[in-house]
Computed example of a mutant assay.
Amino acid sequence: MVVAIHNISGFVEVDKDGNWTCPSDKKNKHGVIPNPVLQVNRLAANLQSYLEKRGAKLPDGHITGKIVLPNPNCRPSYAITLQPEVILYDQWKDLKADSKGGLSTWIKGAFSGSKGDMQDSLLQNLHFILSTSPMWDRLELKGDRNILGEFIEFKGRHDDIQALKCLKRSKVCRFIVQKSTLFGGFGRSRVQILYSPRDYRAEGTSSSEWKEISVKQYTEILFQPLHSKKVKKFKLSSVASVTLSA
């Protein structure tokens, strides 16, 4: 299932082309959302096509698109409420989490019948494809700030860069920057980096498989944020963790 969330308020109408219009922050002006139903269905079709190209043959219509309107102040027109892809606020509010699995019934419904319709080998293949699909890298800064984009490289002294060469996306899925510590008797501050080897097993990496590197705290990370043309520098001492896509 592909889910699009539109947190909009006010009266929402749909025009002849399927575009939605709703109040904007500017006075006497309306915002336009290009045909969200067409977009979410297109994304669902693209996802199914991608999975099939990677070797997962799925039944037609197995990947569906849904649009969630979670804002209680959203008042969609009747034409919008009739669209089967749209989940209104009242419907979303009434979706209770399953006490055992923790999944809402409509999410579980997206996968209902999977066990009967698909062989276990295909499900395992699907899990592998999704776990190795390209995603954005995630840079987590101290203070709970997350930035999506692309990790470029490290910058710093030659010996530190040599030690960090093992942190390649082909070999590592995530590394964590720990607190700075004084090294030796010269008061030189260093940071410890814990990293886990990339592991495609279903159970993931165990705690015993984490490894450690120690580098100087002024070593920097070059990271290009999503939708930005500029590469930014971040000191390792300000970074909490980095997650690398496959």
Rank of each mutant, 00 (worst) to 15 (best):
E209N: 03
A44V: 06
L95C: 04
F234C: 00
S112Q: 15
L182A: 09
F234L: 01
V215T: 03
Y195S: 00
S114I: 09
K93T: 11
V14K: 13
R157S: 12
K57Q: 07
W20Q: 01
V215E: 04
I80H: 03
T181Q: 08
P70D: 01
V2R: 10
R198P: 02
F183G: 08
K27W: 03
L51Q: 02
D60F: 06
L88F: 00
Q124K: 14
G156Q: 06
Q39H: 08
P59T: 04
S9Y: 09
S133T: 03
K229V: 04
C74R: 02
E140M: 10
Q162I: 15
G156E: 07
L51S: 09
N35V: 04
P34F: 05
I221G: 00
I129W: 03
T243F: 09
P59H: 02
D94R: 05
G61F: 01
V191I: 15
R157M: 12
Y89D: 02
Q83T: 06
F175T: 03
N125A: 14
G184L: 12
A202S: 13
I129H: 05
I221H: 09
D25K: 14
G55A: 08
C74Q: 01
V2L: 13
K96H: 06
G61N: 09
R174D: 05
S77H: 07
F151Y: 13
L47G: 03
N28T: 12
Q83M: 10
N73A: 10
E220Y: 06
K211M: 10
K155L: 08
V68W: 13
Y89K: 02
L222M: 10
S112N: 14
A97N: 12
A56I: 08
I33T: 04
D120E: 11
M118L: 15
W210P: 01
S170I: 05
F183M: 10
K179I: 00
M118S: 03
R42W: 07
A97F: 09
I87C: 08
K100R: 10
N73G: 08
